[in-house]
C-alpha cells in the first residue's frame, strides 16, 4: 500500500554515477539546481531533460524509478500549473470565458514552473537514488565540517539523517500494518470530510509515534553498546577520495552550464 515511495531511496546498483564522491555529487546537484533556474527558454529545458536522461542512463537507475519519485508530487504539480495558468497576467489571450482568461504567457509560465519543479525533484532524487544515505551523510558532514568551528553539529546532523533514512522503510511497513489492524477494527480512513478523516488518523498516528519512540530508545542503546560516542575519534569505512571520475564529472557539469548560458543567450525560443 505504502511501499512505492522512492523519494530518498537508494537504488543499489553499481555505476559511474554511484561511484562519484558524495561531496562532488552534492556540489554537482547544487550546480544542477542553479542550472534549473538559469534555464530561461525551451532550448534550456530541452538541454536539462537531455542531461537528466543521460545521467540517469549512466547511473543504471531505470528511468521509471525517477518518474516514480515524481508521483507523490503530482497534486502540487497540477496545482502549480493551474495557479500559474489562471493567475499570470498576459496579453496574448487564447481562451476567455466568464472569469477565466488563459493567455499564452500564462500557459508558458505554468509550463515552465511545473517543469522546473519536476527537474528539481528529479535531480535531487537522482542524487539520493545513486548515493547511499550513509555516504550522503558523510559527504554532508565533510562539506559542513568547517562549520564545526562555530559549534555547528555537523556530525550529529549527518548521523540523524542516516538514521532517519534507515528507518523510512521500517516505519512505512509499520504504518501499513497498523492501518490494516485498525481497519480490521472497523476504522475508516477513506470516507468522510476533511475533519473526520483527520480524526480517523489518530488511531494510526498515535501507535506510529509510540513505535518510533520505542525504536529510537532501542537504537540509542544498541549504538551505545557498540561504542558510539559522537563524532570524535571516529574513523570511516568509506574514506572519500576525489578520483579522475570526479574530475570528469565536474568538467562535464561546467561544460553543461556553459551550454545552458549560451543556449539562453543565442537560441531565441
Amino acid at each position: 500500500m505504502l511501499t512505492n515511495i522512492t523519494m530518498g531511496q537508494y537504488y543499489p546498483v553499481d555505476s559511474r554515477v554511484h561511484r562519484l564522491d558524495p561531496r562532488i555529487k552534492l556540489i554537482l546537484t547544487i550546480a544542477f539546481i542553479v542550472c534549473v533556474f538559469l534555464a530561461s527558454n525551451f532550448a534550456g529545458y530541452i538541454l536539462l531533460s537531455a542531461f537528466l536522461f543521460a545521467v540517469c542512463r549512466l547511473s543504471n537507475v531505470p528511468f521509471k524509478m525517477l518518474l516514480r519519485g515524481l508521483k507523490p508530487l503530482r497534486i502540487i504539480l497540477i496545482l502549480t500549473f493551474l495557479l500559474n495558468l489562471f493567475f499570470t497576467p498576459g496579453d496574448d489571450v487564447w481562451v476567455s470565458f466568464w472569469i477565466i482568461r488563459i493567455t499564452r504567457e500564462a500557459f508558458l509560465q505554468a509550463l515552465f514552473y511545473s517543469l522546473r519543479l519536476m527537474f528539481l525533484v528529479a535531480g535531487t532524487s537522482l542524487l539520493t537514488l545513486t548515493t547511499s544515505p550513509i555516504s550522503l551523510a558523510d559527504g554532508l558532514e565533510i562539506l559542513m565540517g568547517p562549520l564545526k568551528k562555530i559549534r555547528f553539529p555537523a556530525h550529529e546532523l549527518a548521523m540523524m539523517m542516516t538514521i532517519a533514512l534507515r528507518f523510512i522503510p521500517t516505519l512505512l511497513d509499520e504504518t501499513d500494518k497498523i492501518m490494516k489492524a485498525q481497519m480490521a477494527r472497523g476504522a475508516d480512513f477513506e470516507s468522510g470530510n476533511l475533519l473526520s478523516r483527520a480524526k480517523a488518523m489518530v488511531p494510526l498516528l498515535v501507535p506510529l509515534f509510540i513505535s518510533a519512540f520505542r525504536r529510537a530508545g532501542d537504537l540509542a542503546m544498541a549504538m551505545e553498546s557498540r561504542c558510539y560516542h559522537g563524532g570524535e575519534g571516529r574513523t570511516r569505512l568509506r574514506v572519500l577520495k576525489i578520483t579522475k571520475n570526479d574530475m570528469i564529472a565536474c568538467v562535464i557539469m561546467a561544460a553543461f552550464i556553459a551550454m545552458l548560458i549560451l543556449a539562453g543567450r543565442f537560441i531565441p525560443f
Partner: peptide, 15 residues
C-alpha cells in the same frame, strides 16, 4: 544503524 549491511558491520569499528 546503517542502510547497507557492510556499513552496519563497520559501525562499531568506526566508533
Amino acid at each position: 544503524v546503517a542502510t547497507i549491511v557492510k556499513e552496519d558491520v563497520a559501525f562499531g569499528l568506526e566508533n
